[in-house]
């Protein structure tokens, strides 16, 4: 039976892992390669690295990180942040990432999804989507609007419509982040996650808000999410990936167990 995936997200700035609260106030918490190796040992199913480097002259650092990670761990990992062209995608994939995640660039140029899928295969192209609850309207019928530029700018498009369009263009997966829930540790945005995972046939990764193993259980039992993204709950050693998986397995969620 296909397991529900636990994905750990690492925000990387200038070669260091950071964790932010609601997209602001990042603090350094460690070396991304060492952290990747640790989560690999704990049995994480996948990793995501978000390059939150502000300046373009620091872009090459993420390539070094990707190469270092690819030498250490033998599970899929994706890279997002600052990917704007086929050339950017190629560099990250060639350095050893399995997938690339595009967000703002895909909204500005949806054709990039099609181009990436055609060049590297749909399985390589993850659509990152930041969503915020708004008033329902004719423009935003779902009541969840897509935001770009790291969650700062409303894009004026509807999350459900955008998810469907991205799937048609060839996205292989959607990583759905709730801006409202992100950094709160109060649990995933279940209504949003259920909506999007019902809307598309490709896998949806729930993101934003996980603080307890109960939250991960909730998102798997109450929505069709294929994977759950976690960050601070493991970064600050409150839980290990193994602990979260044991908790889920005991409650009947299919997960990949560590066999030593």
């Amino acid at each position: 039976m296909l397991s529900k995936r636990i994905i750990v997200c690492l925000d990387v700035r200038a070669g260091k892992t950071t964790k932010g609260i609601r997209f602001t106030g990042n603090i350094d918490i460690g070396d991304p390669i060492a952290m990747a190796a640790e989560y690999y040992a704990q049995g994480v199913d996948e990793l995501v690295f978000y390059d939150i480097t502000a300046s373009s002259d620091e872009r090459d650092i993420i390539i070094d990180v990707v190469e270092g990670v690819a030498r250490e761990i033998f599970i899929p990992f994706s890279v997002g942040g600052g990917i704007r062209s086929l050339d950017d995608m190629h560099r990250v994939l060639a350095a050893g990432a399995e997938k690339i995640s595009i967000n703002t660039a895909a909204v500005q140029n949806p054709y990039l999804i099609y181009q990436g899928a055609k060049a590297f295969g749909s399985q390589c192209v993850v659509l990152g989507m930041d969503a915020k609850k708004v008033e329902q309207s004719s423009v935003i019928p779902s009541g969840y609007e897509v935001y770009i530029n790291g969650g700062r700018t409303p894009a004026g498009i509807d999350t459900a419509q955008w998810a469907k369009r991205a799937q048609e263009l060839g996205a292989g997966e959607i990583c759905l982040n709730s801006i409202d829930a992100d950094g709160t540790n109060d649990g995933y945005e279940l209504v949003l996650t259920a909506l999007i995972s019902r809307t598309v046939s490709i896998p949806v990764i729930a993101s934003g808000g996980a603080g307890l193993p109960e939250h991960v259980l909730e998102v798997f039992t109450e929505t069709d999410a294929s994977a759950a993204l976690i960050a601070s709950m493991v970064h600050y050693q409150r839980y290990t990936v193994r602990h979260i998986k044991d908790y889920l397995a005991e409650r009947g969620v299919p997960v990949r167990r560590c066999i030593s």
Binding site: S3, R5, E173, P203, A227, R256, R257, I259
Partner: peptide, 28 residues
């Protein structure tokens, strides 16, 4: 089912094979 089939899944071994030597039956 969601398509693609993406993620970790089990094997049911039908015929023993040298490349599967020492691989735990529960491995995904």
């Amino acid at each position: 089912i969601k398509i693609p089939h993406m993620g970790w899944n089990n094997l049911s071994v039908r015929a023993a094979h040298p490349v599967l030597a020492g691989v735990d039956a529960r491995a995904q």
